[in-house]
């Protein structure tokens, strides 16, 4: 190999190295920017969900502190009024409104969750669902350790959303919810025997994905027309 050939080979080698460096740098830049982008997106999402929870708390407090006493006062005033069938009907209506208001407030601010933990809160939630809907709700709670409050709240909201979807859209007879831990992950599986759903991304599905991502996890969705829907959340603990 003469000097000219050597210089050509050197040039090819150096050019290849530079080109390789440029390609590697492109890959590195894409990964780095993507990571930063997702971190920022996650921060935005967290802020939005925190804002949402604060807003729910505020609405629940307003309902409890402002509308509750007003309804109570109305009931007292009606008791002083002359007893007629109409007054009786109004009293019953006020009673219904007060109960419904309490239900909305509890839904907005899950006291059971805050006071007694996720297991009790979910059981209480399904009791309320059974009262309101003929669907069968089964809960298998297989978590022994206590979950962080943030995770508990998000899991509670996920189950609420899935239950709402099942009641409203699936047309099924049964919803089964299973919580268990394995290999440092929390597995939340919700399965209904309804009509299944399309592959589109509705607001509810997006919200579920966001909540899963917020906890650093993921959502796997399996749905077939006429064969029900299964949501599986894998959330790191």
């Amino acid at each position: 190999m003469d000097a000219y050939e050597t210089s050509i080979y050197t040039a090819v080698l150096i050019a290849s190295l530079l080109l390789g460096a440029i390609i590697l740098f492109s890959g590195w830049a894409m990964v780095r920017v993507q990571k930063r982008y997702y971190t920022r997106e996650q921060e935005h999402l967290l802020a939005r969900i925190e804002l949402l929870e604060e807003e729910r708390l505020r609405i629940a407090e307003d309902l409890h502190d402002e509308l509750g006493p007003m309804l109570g006062m109305s009931r007292l005033l009606l008791q002083k009024a002359e007893r007629t069938p109409l007054v009786g009907q109004v009293e019953a209506a006020i009673e219904t409104v007060a109960n419904r208001l309490g239900g909305i407030a509890r839904n907005l601010q899950p006291e059971q969750l805050l006071e007694r933990g996720l297991d009790t809160a979910l059981r209480h939630f399904f009791d309320l669902c059974r009262e309101a809907h003929p669907m069968s709700f089964l809960l298998h709670y297989g978590i022994e350790r206590e979950l962080p409050p943030e995770t508990s709240l998000q899991v509670y909201r996920m189950v609420q959303e899935v239950t709402h979807n099942a009641i409203k859209h699936s047309g099924g007879q049964q919803l089964e919810v299973c919580l268990q831990t394995a290999e440092g992950n929390l597995y939340l599986t919700c399965r209904d025997d309804g009509a299944g759903m399309g592959t589109g991304k509705g607001l509810g599905k997006r919200s579920l994905e966001h909540r899963a991502k917020l906890l650093g996890g993921q959502l796997r969705l399996q749905t077939t027309r006429g064969a029900g829907t299964t949501y599986q959340f894998i959330l790191p603990l």
Partner: peptide, 17 residues
């Protein structure tokens, strides 16, 4: 500049001949 970089490398190491 990618093309320019490669051209210069060939210029320095072999193209000149």
């Amino acid at each position: 500049f990618t093309y320019s970089t490669l051209t210069e490398v060939f210029w320095v190491f072999g193209l000149a001949h």
